[in-house]
Computed example of a mutant assay.
Amino acid sequence: MQDRYGPIVSFAVILTTLAISLGILWMAPPNSMVPVHFSQGWARDHFVSPWKKLNIWIGLQLGLWTLMYGLPSLRRSGEGFQASVSVYDAAWITVTSMLGLLTIASMEQALGIRIAMGSLTDIMIGGFLIIVGNGLGKLRPNTLVGIRTPWTKASVRVWDQTHRASGPIFILAGVVLMAVGFGMFGTNRTHHTYLTVVFLLAVFSWGLSWLLWRKEQRPG
Rank of each mutant, 00 (worst) to 15 (best):
H37G: 02
V48E: 13
G207S: 07
L15M: 13
L177S: 04
W206A: 08
A83D: 12
P219Y: 08
H191I: 07
V176Y: 07
S86N: 09
R214L: 08
L120V: 08
I104K: 06
F128K: 00
E108P: 00
T143Q: 04
Y194A: 09
G133F: 11
Q109E: 14
R4L: 07
I93V: 14
E108L: 15
M33Q: 14
W65R: 00
L139M: 12
W92D: 00
L195V: 13
P7A: 05
L71F: 14
I58P: 12
G41P: 10
L25N: 02
L101R: 02
S77T: 13
T66W: 14
A154S: 09
P50A: 09
V203G: 10
S21W: 01
A110D: 08
L102V: 12
T152E: 06
W159K: 03
Q109L: 02
L211G: 00
A173S: 15
W42A: 14
L172Q: 03
L99E: 01
A19V: 08
A173Y: 11
H163I: 13
Y194N: 03
I131N: 01
K153F: 14
M107E: 09
S32E: 10
P35I: 03
G181C: 06
W213H: 09
F182K: 05
W210F: 09
L111K: 07
W65H: 04
L195A: 14
L208V: 00
I130D: 01
T16P: 05
V48M: 14
T66M: 14
P50W: 12
Y194I: 10
G137N: 09
F204A: 08
L201A: 15
M1C: 04
